[in-house]
């Protein structure tokens, strides 16, 4: 459980950073003259919080297989899409007229979701490299001790 909360906390900070970047890129491209208020700074934080809810709820003590994990990630992505789209547009705002905006937001959510997984993978890759180096050092020191005997 502790690891699960830590994982989600890390995801939260990654999401907040990525949402900031997405707002900057999309804003610069599509609405460069748009004036924003201080409340806009809350958007990434709220998106981050909403984005980790499905992950927090879908906690499983069981070790999942690769297939189960993929299914779980798809369900998680769809839940996040639904939660954030409802939060942004409201139930009444999800109309055909807003299709371009809805699609743009949905794509952004999917991109951020994938990026979180990729970034976590690179963090893990770094950890794995350190673990392998430590392990090698330990195995060599033990082998040297054995040789001395």
């Amino acid at each position: 459980m502790k690891e699960h909360i830590k994982d989600n906390l890390m995801n939260f900070f990654i999401i907040v950073t990525l949402v900031n970047i997405v707002i900057f890129i999309c804003g610069s491209l599509f609405a460069p003259d748009q004036k924003i208020t201080y409340s806009a700074f809350l958007v990434p934080i709220l998106d981050g919080l909403l984005g980790i809810i499905p992950g927090l709820v879908m906690y499983s003590k069981r070790e999942l297989t690769l297939k189960q994990m993929i299914v779980r990630n798809v369900i998680q992505l769809l839940s996040i899409e639904l939660i954030i789209l409802l939060f942004t547009f409201g139930a009444s705002g999800l109309k055909f007229q807003n299709l371009t905006l809805i699609t743009a937001e949905a794509v952004s959510i999917a991109v951020i979701f994938v990026l979180v997984i990729v970034i976590r993978f690179f963090f893990d890759k770094k950890s794995a490299k350190i673990m392998t180096a430590d392990l090698k050092a330990f195995q060599e020191s033990l082998a040297a001790k054995e040789d001395q005997k």
Partner: peptide, 15 residues
């Protein structure tokens, strides 16, 4: 652990 050659990341925080 003496039989481990290397460690690499697997999906979902596993190694």
């Amino acid at each position: 652990i003496m039989k481990v050659e290397s460690i690499r990341p697997a999906l979902n925080g596993r190694f």
